[in-house]
Write a protein that binds this DNA or RNA. Structure first.
Lengths: 208, 208
DNA sequence: ATATAATCATGCATGCATGTATGTAAAGTG
DNA sequence: CACTTTACATACATGCATGCATGATTATAT
């Protein structure tokens, strides 16, 4: 087989990305060779170098396909909670783990980012995507928290930056541990319990 | 130089471990060759293979030197808080981040475990050490929480397993993010704030 | 219908990393 | 003072993985 049709080409490209996602999330990035990816996709290495410049470009394209949950959080959350900032914040953070719980692609990609990819200079563009998504998430949460303070849901003495660090760390930690062993606990229940308890603590400190 | 004295041999072995710790935490494990480690320690690769079987043995020996904070937590915490389980739990979890904040070796090793080491079959023995430490930490915290319930600090309806997942995830997330950028926030303050707020939430739910 | 360009396969060159085998000179041992 | 072992250095063999260059064949455009 040579020169398949344009639609076929797109199909093989997608299969290459699928294979990369599977292998990287299963064996690790550095531990997976281009040859393994090609074989898993049913082609040779030549096909990869036709569609992608190199390994990093392959990874980058693979990431490009999925919207990281931190990104998706912002647009997805309903607007009708705007008069209840604290509930909005809770809903948005929960949306992150809900997306992760339901979408296998997100699971694979986040597994790669958290556990199957060394954080080194070579792979910096990969992690930039991760960091950028998290930073916008942090900024967004900070804004919502300030609204919560303005509306009296939290005391004026509350430190939004400090609170956001705690809440994002909580979600990150839950995701980190759940990806290590998804059978160990239910991520939705864990996130709800953690968020609700933490928010309850914030509100108690309001009245204190 | 050939055949230095026995004391010198121990010194070079220590320098090899130091070099490995520095390079692995800076460049990643898979991205660092035995030659780089040897050069950084001022010897050749032959020296490494004399002291260690292979790369994995080198990493394992490097980990063996430090006690992971989750391990250290158990023995270190004072016993006089035994009549206040909740305070004991808080102290123990805080001890983890305090050790991390103060000890550079712990910082390097945890950086490797969290960010500079792919979680793959080849490096499984490495992560086993991490997981084992965390599991004993979880078990210990669960016990303390049950005591807190018995003493009425928490309602009988509280789910210790659920609470532990949240608290450990919180600490994990804080460590994870702090290691990414230690300048971004103060880890002690963040951990205290997160723990206190969460515990306050637990207690509020007690009275509810 | 012809020229062009796309889609991949194949082969090669190169470099790097690992592991091992061997050499060597001094330290340890009696 | 033998002579054995230790602590490394040096050298080699091997295997991969990458990147590129080229080839083959057909879709596609004009």
């Amino acid at each position: 087989m040579v020169r398949r049709t344009k639609a076929d080409a797109l199909a093989t490209k997608a299969e290459l990305l699928d294979a990369a996602e599977r292998l990287f999330s299963a064996q690790g990035v550095a531990n997976t060779s281009m040859m393994q990816v090609a074989e898993a996709a049913g082609v040779t290495r030549g096909a990869i170098y036709h569609h992608f410049e190199n390994k990093l470009d392959l990874i980058d394209s693979m990431m490009e396909r999925v919207r990281l949950p931190f990104d998706q959080m912002i647009e997805q959350t309903s607007q009708r909670l705007v008069d209840n900032p604290l509930a909005l914040l809770r809903a948005r953070l929960l949306n992150i783990v809900q997306l992760l719980d339901r979408d296998p692609h997100t699971q694979s990609v986040l597994t790669i980012l958290f556990h199957k990819c060394e954080y080194v200079d070579d792979t910096l563009p990969i992690h930039f995507r991760h960091l950028r998504a998290r930073n916008t998430c942090i900024d967004e949460c900070t804004l919502v928290l300030q609204q919560a303070i303005e509306r009296g849901q939290l005391p004026a003495s509350a430190n939004p930056a400090q609170i956001v660090v705690s809440m994002v760390a909580m979600i990150d930690g839950i995701i980190y541990n759940w990806l290590l062993d998804p059978e160990y606990f239910n991520i939705i229940e864990a996130a709800e319990h953690a968020l609700d308890t933490f928010i309850a603590g914030l509100q108690q400190r309001t009245s204190a």
